[in-house]
Design a protein around this nucleic acid. Structure first.
Lengths: 195, 195
DNA sequence: AGCATTATATAGCAATCACTACAGAGATAG
DNA sequence: CTATCTCTGTAGTGATTGCTATATAATGCT
């Protein structure tokens, strides 16, 4: 067993609470007072466990992505590229329309921009959003090789379009759009599929 | 002429400078120190002219929208609904890809979420974004009455889709997407047009 | 000139920010 | 038991936040 006094709180639960705060208020908007209160711990415990505010945010971000990983891996494993994108768009609409969660998407609204002190966070979020473009792009390149996409189709542009719509839905969700409206957007976007 | 000591700075230029700061750093991220320095004035002058930080932001927001009004009015005045939406999407791609401006869209990134003190700003931005959905929706309803849209088309959903793509492009632009990539997204989105 | 009025510059306000020094509590090891 | 180690709660750190009190400068009116 570990030496010294044992930790008095559950890491996963505390991280979930922190995630919830960052999700609602963004990186800059979430104060340490907000965070410690929601996590049920005092500042020294937070700093001992997570380093600092940015470290806590990165852990919460990992947790956020882990919760959405299933949707992405399952969607991208679909037999056809169209089916994969359909699952991504509809799954995103469904998730963003879930009223049990805070509105919107953490990767979009936590720090689209901000003061200088949150520059690394802004860059990190940007990189993770770009990663999803690359992920879909790889799936669509494979589809093109397999003849699952018309010869004229551009996997890169198509991937960027899909992610653009998902992030646009995240903005809509942040404004209060409901699941039905988001599903209609997803359905409309699918009409852009080549042939 | 006005009574008392005349103002020593140009309102429009100062507002442009403030807009630029809010555009890059968002509402919370822009400090009064950032703003006064960029505007070339001292805090008392700012407060005398604009009331407070939120008042200044609202004025900057008006100025931002005024600069984009031409694109919208001209696009919505196009003879067909398709041409109107085409101009909106391509115009947005062009504007968001302009490297002379800060990245992204002020209405999206200034305060998608935040601490409690910026709640009215978040709501104001949300309302203005919704207004653009309504604006396009009205144009598309007219198009349907005129037979310019198929009977099965839903003007409301279509309008929300268009705005969703534009806001998604704004997120892409905030991450550094260039004009060419944004134009490709706009082109792909237009394929979703009914019939 | 003298007064009223408005803007400016200096300087600093209370409140809040992210973060930490310190002492004690709770565990293991010997 | 004592020694050692790590976590916890209290209480606060200096820095920065949005904002303002005060005195002075610059104008028009009489």
């Amino acid at each position: 067993m570990a030496l010294g006094r044992p930790r008095n709180f559950d890491m996963d639960q505390a991280l979930d609470r922190a995630l919830h705060v960052f999700w609602r208020k963004g990186y800059e908007g979430a104060t340490l007072c907000d965070l410690t209160e929601a996590m049920g711990i005092n500042p020294p415990s937070l700093y001992a466990a997570f380093g600092n505010k940015e470290g806590l945010f990165r852990k919460a971000l990992d947790r956020y992505e882990a919760k959405h990983a299933a949707l992405w891996t399952e969607a991208l494993a679909a037999p056809t590229a169209y089916e994969a994108v359909k699952q991504l768009l509809e799954g995103s609409a469904n998730s963003l329309g879930d009223k049990r969660n805070p509105r919107g998407c953490l990767l979009v609204q936590a720090a689209l921009c901000g003061g200088e002190e949150c520059d690394p966070v802004t860059k990190e979020l940007s990189a993770r959003r770009d990663a999803s473009v690359a992920l879909i792009g790889e799936r669509l390149k494979r589809a093109k090789r397999e003849g699952d996409l018309p010869a004229g189709a551009d996997p890169g542009s198509l991937a960027r379009f899909v992610v653009t719509v998902i992030h646009g839905m995240a903005v809509q969700a942040a404004s209060g759009a409901n699941r039905k409206q988001l599903e209609a957007v997803a359905k409309t976007a699918l009409r852009a599929w080549p042939q």
